[in-house]
Design a protein around this nucleic acid. Structure first.
Length: 303
RNA sequence: GGUGCCAUAGCUCAGUUGGUAGAGCAACGGACUGAAAAUCCGUGUGUCCCUAGUUCGAUUCUUGGUGGCACCA
């Protein structure tokens, strides 16, 4: 059966270059599972593949959207699954590479059918939140969906608000839509996770941020500054520089924060990935030689 | 050189009228199903600078050091 090889790992671990080598070896295209590299005009800050790297192997879902375009894990599920099925007709292997946890799970397990919230409703609910606070949102959710009310993290505004939005949009309780599908795909999935020892990973992240600054991240962020309120730009590497442009901190402070937030993000990714028992881990700090040659073996183990 | 102030968590600092201590940030751990690089939650033992004294008991008071800052020479 044709195989989707999922390559994942925390930011800065070295996925991009390794994925290219693996894809070249398997004669596979690369499907990116990165919720930020999917946007245009953010290439430096998201460490997107370079033009040269993009030419080595065909890539999908890289620099595809404008920052103002709406996108979601669910849309990614639809788009990526149908693309992968199509590619697997002519390729025995397709490599999917990226670190966006929810995007990866959306493709591997699927997510529930939930109506898309239209802008008007979202605005209304947010205005209610601004005016009356979270308590009011909670109270409404409790009436519309007492089941989910008891499950949700009531301190997390985004979750509570979103649940209410869904209830209003769907005309039924959010909990009734949460079926935890675990959809079966028409292709085999093998997951390989790249990791490194913490200290080394952090060191790589710090150095990569310095390199981004050298490569012109400040100028890139400056051009995007007018669009700062877009969700796509609520992103490490940009939001800190926007604070600097606002005059709220020095450039050096912003750079330190970018490093720190990137490290925090890497840690969060590892927390998420550690729960996934299907991942075959490769620790790149442990003198692994010829990782690329190891991958086909891993694929066989699971066939 | 003299005088004054300061020395407490990785950092910035609070505090204990003498009963061995706590905030913010960092760090670490966790949650996560249509905005996810988002959003949220949990975790605080540290020679309270060193030394000698007073005391049942000192991080807290006193002596003497050491280091830092300020002012005066």
């Amino acid at each position: 059966m044709n195989t989707l090889l999922v390559l994942l790992g925390p930011t800065g671990v070295g996925k991009t270059e390794l994925s290219l080598q693996v894809a070249e070896r398997l004669k596979s295209p690369i499907v990116s599972s990165d919720s930020r590299q999917i946007y245009k005009h953010m290439t430096i800050g998201t460490a997107a593949p370079t033009d040269e790297q993009l030419q080595r192997v065909p890539h999908y879902f890289v620099e595809m959207l404008e920052p103002e375009d709406y996108y979601s894990a669910s849309q990614f599920e639809d788009d990526a699954v149908s693309l992968i099925e199509k590619l697997l007709k002519t390729h025995p292997f397709v490599v999917m590479s990226g670190g966006s946890m929810m995007y990866i799970d959306a493709v591997c397990k699927g997510i529930d059918e939930i109506p898309t919230i239209d802008e008007k409703l979202r605005k209304e609910v947010y205005e209610l939140y601004e005016k009356e606070g979270l308590d009011s949102i909670r109270a409404r959710l409790k009436i519309l969906d007492p089941v989910f009310y008891n499950q949700v993290d009531l301190k997390n505004p985004k979750r509570v608000i979103h649940a209410l939005e869904i209830c209003l949009m769907a005309g039924k309780p959010y909990s009734s839509l949460r079926t935890n599908p675990n959809k079966k795909r028409s292709f085999r999935i093998v997951k390989v996770g790249f990791t490194r020892n913490r200290e080394e990973l952090y060191d790589r992240i710090n150095r990569r941020v310095d390199k981004m600054i050298e490569d012109g991240l400040v100028e890139e962020a400056r051009k995007l500054y007018p669009k700062r309120h877009l969700n796509s730009l609520n992103t490490v590497g940009y939001k800190e520089l926007f604070e600097y442009f606002d005059g709220n901190c020095s450039l050096d402070f912003a750079i330190e924060k970018i490093k720190q937030h990137s490290r925090n993000y890497a840690r969060k990714q590892l927390t998420w990935f550690n729960k996934d028992k299907e991942i075959n881990w490769i620790n790149l700090s442990e003198g692994e030689t010829d990782v690329v040659e190891k991958i086909p073996g891993l694929i066989k183990i699971h066939s």
